[in-house]
Design a protein around this nucleic acid. Structure first.
Length: 595
RNA sequence: GGCCCCGUAGUUCAAUUGAAUAGAAUAUCAGAUUUCGGCUCUGACGGUUACAGGUUUGAAUCCUGUCGGGGUCACCA
């Protein structure tokens, strides 16, 4: 079936020729949904055409409306308010549309791999501490964006780069070596990432004490920071690691393996995964090579001390260090190398980096450097910059102990889901294993939805009290609606499929839901274009609200005797359930059959 | 200080990227149901879109300035 917008556009163009004897530019046609306080379904904004019609907005609207009404089967009525022509659409269009999508399994999704291959990088943690609330936003966004792009027809490669080397990793290692007494995840019963994280904290404590002691001896703060024995040990360890010292490398492998095991479990709980992992320890040398290979690049230069720089002043950016005077690489060098390897391996059209907005500058520089090095594909690099997550108490600060741990938070959400569900007591006959799965999907549903419904670009506030609310614009509210719809479908024994309800008298309540369903494909397009799961989240909530209204104000469907109407309404239920399910899938949220 | 982002009901978020009387949720108050899951539905209350100018038929949205908040300017990542 042809899209309503296209059919109307054609009819409107014809109307202008017939009424005003003039052609119009299709791009000028602005169709929008009619606001609910006015009669009609679709509204044409007539302001842009006044120059052509040489009449006032009301008069122009009237003339076009009248012509459409008498010449198009689609338009059965119209009214003009100021410069807005509100058109009433024949309900046959809507029931026909419903009939057409009845049997489409993934309505709204484009054919698999019908569009360019793209890469989404997300998570990319350091291996010296556990994942926290900020990582949750990152992972939920990355995973959801990957699903949305895939639904939109792209082939998607999900990757992360694990920052597994460097001075910060050595800090945990030194602290463990000195104060760890041989502790392991097994001996302590701690998750590996938590154990290693504790030593990262330990390092910082001792380091601070040493600084304080040195300052007390009369050193300046700056001197003390450089001379504290612990930091010197960490730096020496890094040098040993880089030179391949076997004992240090062994320790490094061991401690990282603890962390990976911990991360694996956190990712499993989050419900995210990756197609390929990159490790900084593998790629950091490649970046160095690539920089040296491209030394002839315009605006690369070497200082007297041997350090390598790029001058980006012509592009209103700074001078940026690429290689240290000792020849080692810095953060951006590593990213240059990784980007080049990825292009060689996957040749994607776009490379999306889900990274916080504190790195906006870094990614501007990265894309620019790669372009200067002559890589045309670097134009496809896009930083999916998201805002930071604040707590009611302010910013998360590890030093002040206000960091919200990812595992703890997810568990807390699940526990709350359990308490609320058990209080309602509708699950007595459910197996306990099944209940566990359910509580996780409700708890995580609440959390993911809470985070994803906010525009990624914006900074957001995470209030734990509000996030466990299950009413209003929340994940569990949507899940609950889904469970109710499924309950109707089960009880009415509805099989679905193509049913003839062309003779059914379609009610406004029916049409309102169908119109909302109609929007789904466009919503996916838009969210894919903007890389914004929030658009899916808000749409799904609107659909649920429209459906609940329909459900409340429609006589019991199962008791409906007119078969055509019954089939129509059950089809509405079935498609609503499916779109809710698919929408929530795009957010990484499961929907339960019962709850 | 230079550069970048952001200021919308008490609070948390929307607003099809320039259109109609700026919408939801929450909180507070008032209601609905012989009904398929009351974790439902309907109302009321709540706004000078930080402020001041400008562009436009039309501005929360674009431009300029002011104030306020955040980020970033490392031979850290």
């Amino acid at each position: 079936m042809e899209k309503l917008e296209n059919l109307l556009s054609t009819a409107i163009k014809e109307a202008f020729v017939a009424v005003f004897e003039t052609g119009i530019d299709e791009k000028q046609i602005q169709l929008q949904k009619t606001r609910k306080e006015f009669e009609g379904d679709v509204t044409l904004v007539v302001f842009p055409f006044l120059r052509v019609t040489k009449k006032g907005p009301e008069q122009s609207g009237e003339a076009i409306g009248e012509h459409l009404k008498s010449n198009s089967d689609l338009v059965i009525g119209y009214n003009v308010v100021k410069g807005f022509l509100n058109l009433e659409i024949n309900s046959i269009y809507w029931s026909g549309f419903l009939n057409e999508i009845a049997e489409i399994e993934n309505f709204g999704f484009e054919a698999v791999n019908s569009k360019d291959r793209v890469m989404v990088e997300y998570s990319s943690p350091n291996t010296n501490k556990p994942l926290h609330l900020g990582h949750l936003r990152n992972n939920f966004l990355g995973n959801s964006v990957a699903r949305i792009l895939k639904a939109n027809g792209h082939e998607v490669v999900k990757v992360q780069i694990i920052n597994d080397r460097g001075i910060h990793i050595c800090k945990s290692m030194v602290a463990w070596q000195k104060y760890g007494n041989g502790e392991t995840p097994i001996s302590t019963g701690l998750k590996g990432d938590k154990l290693v994280g504790n030593y990262y904290v330990k390092f910082d404590q001792v380091y601070k004490e040493q600084i304080a002691a040195l300052v007390a001896e009369g050193k300046t703060e700056e001197e003390a920071k450089k001379q504290a024995p612990l930091i010197i040990e960490a730096q020496e360890m890094l040098l040993k690691w880089e030179s391949g010292d076997e004992a240090i490398n062994e320790l490094w492998r061991t401690m990282n393996s603890w962390v990976y095991k911990g991360f694996e479990s956190t990712y499993a709980t989050m419900g995210v995964d990756f197609d390929k992992l990159y490790y900084e320890s593998d790629t950091y040398l490649i970046g160095k090579d690539k920089v040296q290979e491209h030394m002839d690049t315009d605006s690369f230069y070497e200082k007297e001390d041997g350090s390598i720089w790029i001058n980006l002043e012509a592009d209103k950016l700074d001078n940026k260090l690429l290689l240290r005077s000792d020849g080692t690489s810095v953060y951006i060098t590593q990213d240059i190398g990784t980007a080049i390897i990825r292009e060689e391996e996957f040749a994607c059209k776009n490379y999306y980096y889900v990274v916080g907005n504190e790195q906006d500058y870094h990614f501007n520089v990265l894309a620019l450097i790669l372009q200067k090095m002559g890589f045309n594909w670097a134009k496809g690099i896009e930083h999916l910059s998201y805002g930071m997550v604040d707590l009611p108490s302010g910013k998360m600060k590890s030093r002040e102990g206000t960091v919200v741990d990812a595992d703890d938070l997810m568990l807390e959400m699940k526990t709350t889901a359990k308490e609320i569900s058990e209080e309602l007591g509708k699950l007595e006959d459910m197996e306990s294993v099944e209940k566990e799965t359910l509580f996780w999907s409700i708890g995580l549903g609440a959390l993911k939805y809470f985070i994803l419904k906010v525009d990624p670009k914006k900074r957001m506030l995470f209030d734990p009290k509000e996030s466990v609310d299950f009413n209003g614009n929340t994940g569990p509210f949507i899940q609950y609606t889904y469970a109710r719809v499924k309950s109707i479908l089960r009880k009415s024994n509805f099989k679905g499929g193509a049913l003839d309800f062309s003779n059914a008298a379609v009610d406004v309540e029916d049409v309102n839901v169908i119109k909302k369903l109609y929007d789904f494909p466009e919503v996916i397009n838009e969210s894919a274009a903007l890389k914004s799961p929030a658009i899916i989240a808000n749409y799904t909530y609107e659909l649920v609200k429209v459906f609940n209204h329909f459900y409340q104000n429609t006589p019991p469907i199962m008791k409906e005797e007119n078969e055509a109407i019954r089939n129509l309404r059950l089809t509405i239920c079935a498609k609503t359930a499916q779109v809710i399910s698919n929408g929530m899938y795009l957010l990484g949220i499961d929907v339960p059959e019962r709850m």
